[in-house]
Lab assay of single mutants.
Amino acid sequence: SRWTEEEMETAKKGLLEHGRNWSAIARMVGSKTVSQCKNFYFNYKKRQNLDEILQQHK
């Protein structure tokens, strides 16, 4: 299923807060499964600069 802007923003916040904790990110997004969140990261990594966001994760 397609990702809305809102879901993407929430997933990015999740990456920032939780790093690669996909289940925590899935809980934040609410409408996507753990594997969908993981796939989002790998599919949108380049397009959305997700690696940069991940590097900011403490």
Rank of each mutant, 00 (worst) to 15 (best):
K45Y: 04
S31W: 03
N43L: 04
S1T: 09
R47F: 12
A24E: 13
N43W: 02
D51V: 02
I53A: 14
K32L: 01
L54S: 12
E9V: 07
Y44I: 11
Q36R: 11
I53R: 09
H57L: 12
T4C: 02
N39P: 01
K46A: 11
Q48F: 13
G30K: 10
T10N: 12
E6M: 04
R20Q: 11
F42T: 08
N49I: 03
Q48V: 14
M28T: 06
N49A: 14
N39R: 03
Y44T: 06
N39F: 05
K46P: 11
S23W: 15
E7P: 06
Y44V: 10
S35R: 08
G14L: 02
L16G: 06
K46H: 05
K32E: 01
V29C: 05
L16I: 13
L54G: 11
I25S: 04
G19Q: 02
R47T: 14
E9Q: 10
A11L: 13
K32R: 04
T4S: 03
Y44R: 07
H18A: 02
L16Y: 02
K45G: 06
M8W: 01
M28Y: 10
K13A: 07
G14H: 03
K46M: 03
V29R: 01
A24S: 10
T10G: 08
R47Y: 01
L16S: 08
T10R: 14
T33F: 15
W22S: 01
N21K: 04
E9D: 12
T10K: 14
L54K: 09
A24W: 03
E17Y: 10
L15V: 04
L16C: 07
E52V: 08
R27C: 02
R20P: 09
A11I: 15
M28W: 11
E17R: 11
I25L: 06
G30Q: 03
M28V: 06
Y44C: 02
T4N: 04
Q36P: 02
G19K: 04
V29K: 00
E7A: 12
A11H: 12
E9P: 03
D51P: 08
T33E: 03
G19Y: 08
R2Q: 06
S23N: 15
V29Y: 02
E52A: 14
L54N: 08
L16E: 07
T4L: 00
L15H: 03
E9T: 14
S31E: 08
L50A: 11
K13T: 04
E7G: 07
Q36E: 15
K38N: 00
K13R: 13
E9W: 02
V34L: 14
Q48I: 14
S23I: 13
A26W: 02
E5Y: 07
E9H: 07
Q48T: 10
S23K: 11
N49F: 06
L54A: 13
W3H: 06
V34R: 10
K46I: 07
L54E: 07
G14Y: 06
W3D: 08
V34T: 12
T4P: 02
G19A: 15
E9A: 15
F40I: 05
G19R: 06
W3K: 14
K58N: 04
E9Y: 06
W3N: 09
N43E: 14
E6G: 05
K32S: 01
R2F: 12
G14C: 10
E17C: 06
Q36I: 14
Y41L: 11
E6T: 10
F40T: 00
R27Y: 03
H18S: 04
Y41P: 02
K38Y: 04
G19D: 01
S35F: 03
Q55I: 04
K38V: 05
N49K: 12
A24T: 09
S31H: 04
G19E: 00
E6L: 07
E17H: 10
K32C: 00
Q55M: 04
V34I: 12
N21D: 08
V29W: 13
Q48K: 15
L54F: 05
Y41I: 15
K38R: 10
T33D: 05
G30M: 12
K32W: 07
E7N: 05
M8K: 10
G14R: 06
Y41W: 13
H18L: 08
W3F: 09
M28H: 06
M8A: 05
K45W: 03
N43D: 11
S31N: 10
E7S: 09
E9N: 10
C37R: 00
Q55S: 12
K45V: 13
Y41V: 10
N39V: 05
A26N: 00
G19W: 10
K13E: 04
K32Q: 00
V29P: 00
R27D: 11
Q36G: 09
L54W: 04
K32I: 00
R2D: 09
D51F: 00
R27A: 13
S35T: 11
T33Y: 04
E17G: 05
K45C: 07
E17N: 12
M8I: 12
W22D: 02
C37I: 13
G14N: 03
K13H: 02
I53W: 07
R20M: 14
F42G: 05
N49P: 12
T10I: 14
A26K: 02
R20V: 07
D51S: 08
K13V: 04
G30L: 14
A11R: 08
M28E: 15
W3I: 09
E9L: 05
V29A: 02
N43G: 08
T33R: 00
V34H: 10
C37M: 12
H18R: 14
Q36M: 15
L50W: 14
Q55L: 08
S23P: 13
R20N: 11
V34Q: 08
S31K: 10
S31L: 05
K45H: 06
T10S: 12
N43V: 04
T10L: 15
R47M: 05
G14W: 05
F40C: 03
V29I: 12
Q55C: 04
N49Q: 03
F40Q: 00
V34G: 04
V34P: 12
T10H: 04
I25K: 11
A26F: 10
K46Q: 12
N49W: 02
L15P: 05
Q36D: 09
L50D: 10
W22K: 01
K38T: 02
F40M: 05
G30I: 15
K32H: 03
N43H: 13
S1Y: 07
F40V: 02
K38P: 00
L50H: 10
S1N: 15
Q55E: 14
S1I: 07
V29Q: 01
A24Q: 13
H18N: 07
R20Y: 02
Q36C: 08
L15Q: 00
L16W: 11
R47L: 12
L16Q: 06
F42A: 12
D51R: 15
E52H: 12
Q48D: 09
I53C: 11
Q36A: 14
K46F: 01
I25E: 01
F42D: 15
I53H: 11
R47N: 10
H57C: 12
N39T: 10
S23V: 15
E52I: 06
T33G: 04
C37W: 06
I25T: 01
E5N: 09
C37D: 01
T4V: 02
N21V: 15
E6K: 09
S23D: 15
F42M: 13
V29G: 02
Q36V: 15
G30F: 13
H18G: 03
Y44S: 09
E5R: 07
T4G: 01
H57R: 12
D51I: 15
L50S: 10
A24N: 08
Q55K: 14
M28S: 10
S31T: 06
T33K: 06
K38F: 02
E7I: 12
R20A: 10
Q55Y: 03
R2V: 09
G14T: 06
R27H: 05
H57D: 05
E6F: 04
E7D: 09
E52M: 01
K45I: 14
E9I: 12
A24D: 08
N21Y: 14
